[in-house]
Amino acid sequence: MDTIKHNQDAWDKKVEAGARYTKPVSTEIIEKGRQGDWGISVTTEKAVPRDWFPKDMNGLRILCLASGGGQQGPILAATGADVTVMDISEKQLEQDLFVAKRDGLNLKTIKGEMSDLSYFADNYFDLIVHPVSNVFVKDVHPVWKEAARVLKSRGVLISGFTNPLLYIFDDYQERQGILKVTNSIPTSTKEYLTEKEWKEHVLSGEAIEYGHSLEDQIQGQIDAGFVIAGFYEDDFGGNRILDQYIKTFIATKAVKIGNDI
């Protein structure tokens, strides 16, 4: 099956259902951003440290990669940055355009896949913001390589992604408070569901996810020409049993160095 198309449709449906990561930010948040009081998240709960961003955001070329939903993009645009939001979901991008029109922001949207940035020239962006979303692609290496290509030398990639430990447990039982190891990493929705569960999952329109190894996530960035310059972890805010034992989301700040070292 075409998993990209399936996930595109799944996120369109999430917008219609009003899911958390599809709700656009308020005018109040945008106004605070214009006054210098702003923050964004690329994981679940924690805000990205402000010192991961340049002090002067005005005119900075930023790509919000697989980041539709009217959240990160509009806030960054409110700082004076030149923001482009790219996502596979048309309805997610509509949320960004809604905020931009409502609050008079300089923001562009492009519908496309995170692993194919051929629309953009080499060395074009100063900063890429990539919230937890590569969980929806089978291979993360093209994402890192394309991000490195379109970033300027010393450009910054801020990424959020899932700790693969989350996927070793039976998802249904974990949500019931039972931690039962059933899956190996790497994995995908199709691999850890029974045939009956898989058919129900597809028919219900739920997104297909991939559990990538930490080597693919972190060494993958390094192989693409980045140096990891920042790191923190996040969780579900205490809403899942795993929060009692380990944090299941990771954020990294990576700087493009290419052949500089």
Score class of each variant (00 low, 15 high):
K199S: 12
A148I: 08
D171H: 07
E146M: 06
L193I: 01
S159H: 12
L127M: 15
E206Y: 10
V150Q: 04
I185S: 10
D126R: 02
F125E: 10
E215W: 15
K190E: 13
F125N: 05
V181C: 11
R149F: 13
E146R: 02
Y210P: 07
T187Q: 05
T162P: 00
S213K: 14
E195V: 00
K152M: 11
V181N: 04
V137Y: 05
N163V: 10
K196S: 12
K145S: 14
H141V: 11
E146Y: 07
H201D: 00
L179H: 03
L151A: 08
G211C: 00
S159V: 14
L179R: 08
H212L: 03
S213C: 10
Y167Q: 03
K145W: 06
E200V: 01
F169G: 09
N123D: 15
T189E: 04
L203F: 06
K180A: 13
F136K: 04
E209N: 11
D171P: 01
W198F: 09
E215A: 15
D171E: 13
V202K: 12
D139R: 05
T187G: 05
A148T: 07
S153Q: 15
I158Q: 10
V143K: 04
K199A: 09
D170C: 06
V137D: 01
F161G: 04
S188M: 03
V137L: 10
Y210K: 01
Y167F: 15
D139P: 03
D139E: 14
